[in-house]
Design a protein around this nucleic acid. Structure first.
Lengths: 233, 233
DNA sequence: ACCTGAACACCGTTCAAGT
DNA sequence: ACCTGAACACCGTTCAAGT
């Protein structure tokens, strides 16, 4: 009885903007994005956003039902930044590979999006366009029926799962952190796990950004190899 | 100058519990877990938790520096529920496969954890023990050096990325939702994407829970095949 | 049609004060 | 050593009232 209904910005029409006066959704979402990129998810409050638009905080509720809907709009927007090659031109494997790297970059560029992935369903037009384009590549590869969606979910799952904790890690670090001290504490924590400890110790001289790139590529190639192997059967 | 330092519960000793009087961290974390499981991430507030423990909200700050540290503690706890087979007994591939399924179940059982993955680094003992066990399996498989960690990251990345959006989806749904109406709206949204639309339409008769299981297995097998292929080279 | 301000019911956290 | 209450600086959202 008390269960909330399923709701989403994408499930109902926006208020008609028949009159050219007043603000617009686009304007509001653009301002929200600026705030999110500059200050993170906690930096976006309805009051701050109102102030930025030189308006009362509560005036926003005329354009948007609540804050979650606003976040859904902002969230969909960033997927418009994705690079989506044409699989007919460069082939399916390069297409999805480029898309995977591009996805990772979008999330790293907008770290607040990592927090939203586990909270809001992605039903916006940019998300769908992206899914559609990736499906096209997998169909071209030779997948059929539900396997197209499965391959899709496998690859995007890999990218998200690899990138989300990377954001969490970046969040906790800043340039202010004493790297040497951090390393020392991590090693102390890992002391009980010999394998882990030894590999951490052997890593001292590596650039962490580079290591993460290598790791991402390693996994991406593995996932794609695994998917390709299915086609041969 | 203003950058926050890297901090984590795991990086400093807890306040010594030399005296047996007063509350304990364990007690507090256990109560927090109950609240989280029952009411989700938003259901946990310091005031509510204090009330549940028949204490003032602010008394908790004697045991824990802030709410994030409390969440780190709760978050690490759930990974203690993981099934971790012995790779020496059942082989590496079955081991990591069982662990992958177990991970997914833990997240689905504690949906609030999905929100935390992008926010807090996982440095607790349960997380480390889990990583260590999985590394052991991959070493047994034949991986060496950094490839052990890469294989690890690839598999756990896949599981997280597959499961986090599943939680987001579950969050938005309740038993109250009119499935027929939802389907109709989704199809309307997907109208512009023929491939997507057709596959959605063809899916009508499937149990969504079952489809997600199939999808997870499809991806898991693909990822493991891809990793296994590396060993042959 | 659009915007405002006041008000409600919350937050996390600090801190001086108590025992 | 442990706990309290008051206080500060915030939240999202509703709603009657304005233009």
């Amino acid at each position: 009885m008390t269960g909330k209904q399923f709701t989403s910005v994408w499930l109902h029409e926006p208020r008609k903007a028949t009159t050219p006066q007043g603000r617009s959704r686009e304007e509001i979402v653009a301002a929200a994005l600026e705030l999110l990129d500059a200050e993170g998810l906690d930096g976006l409050s309805m009051r701050k956003l109102g102030a930025k638009l030189r308006a009362g905080a509560t005036s926003l509720y005329w354009y948007v039902a609540n804050k979650d809907e606003l976040l859904e709009l902002a969230y969909d927007d960033i997927w418009g930044e994705l690079v989506t090659p044409d699989p007919e031109v460069i082939g399916w494997r390069d297409t999805v590979s480029v898309m995977a790297h591009s996805m990772r970059q979008v999330i790293l560029r907008h770290p607040w999006s990592a927090d939203l992935l586990g909270r809001l369903p992605a039903l916006g037009p940019h998300s769908l366009a992206f899914t559609d384009r990736m499906s096209q590549a997998f169909r071209l590869a030779g997948f059929t029926g539900m396997d197209i969606d499965f391959a899709n979910a496998t690859l995007t799952g890999y990218v998200l799962g690899m990138t989300i904790p990377e954001v969490a890690w970046n969040n906790s670090m800043t340039s202010q952190v004493d790297q040497a001290q951090l390393r020392e504490t991590v090693v102390r924590i890992a002391a009980d796990y010999p394998g882990l400890r030894d590999r951490l110790a052997g890593n001292t001289d590596q650039d962490p950004r580079l290591v993460r790139e290598l790791c991402f590529d390693f996994g991406l190639v593995s996932v794609l190899d695994g998917l390709e192997a299915r086609l041969a059967k």
